[in-house]
Design a protein around this nucleic acid. Structure first.
Lengths: 114, 114
DNA sequence: CTGTATCCTCGGGGATACTG
DNA sequence: CAGTATCCCCGAGGATACAG
């Protein structure tokens, strides 16, 4: 049974790259941070809050949906509305997201103070 | 004292983006994971282990050095050699790196099993 | 061995206008 | 309101060859 921990080093790269592949680009982690930490949002809300243009936002959300990280819910309202929320699986990314939030904040304090 | 937790949501995006800005691209986190978890490496070793071409590797390492995440050490050997290692500041990224490694592994297991 | 120099490709990502 | 359709641009990143 060496499968379990023979990674002195090798598949570490692969693991990182697998993660990067799923949350690639400038926006996916931003979107996920909103949904995971802030709850459900409508399409327009996400667009305004994040500053992502509709075209890109659609694309990012579709990719996230494919990877089962967001759920798309269409509502029967007069002008149709759509709600996006994070899935349980996205919660497993919270560790990554929160670590990045913490580091980003700390980093900003650091570069400001030097 | 609202500075501490008035981020109902807003600067969360900024924090994520700050982090993404520093570790942008396909390679920086891979390189850091090698140096942080695996210790000092020579230029050629990094290139071979990661599969990054010289030109890109140089660029990435320089950017990481600018952000004080790696240290470059030139050695007085016959054909000059250079050693790269992670800085103490890079250790603060370990939390992010390890979270991504864990998630990547878990994710691979998940997609394989479905 | 550690880089630089050149060249090239490809697609991420933005702007804007339009549709159901 | 929630997307699509077009158009466009720039730069990340790869290949290869060369230099100190």
């Amino acid at each position: 049974m060496k499968d379990q921990q023979d990674d002195g080093c090798e598949n570490v790269h692969a693991a990182i790259q697998d993660t990067l592949y799923v949350v690639n680009g400038k926006w996916k982690l931003v979107i996920l941070s909103i949904l995971v930490n802030g709850g459900t949002r409508r399409f327009g809300e996400l667009s305004r809050e994040s500053g992502i243009s509709p075209r890109i936002l659609t694309k990012e959300l579709q990719e996230l949906e494919i990877n089962q990280l967001v759920k798309r819910q269409v509502c029967n309202t007069k002008p149709v509305t759509v709600e996006y929320s994070s899935t349980p699986y996205a919660e497993t990314l919270k560790e990554v997201i929160d670590a990045m939030i913490r580091w980003g904040r700390n980093h900003k304090r650091k570069i400001r103070g030097q």
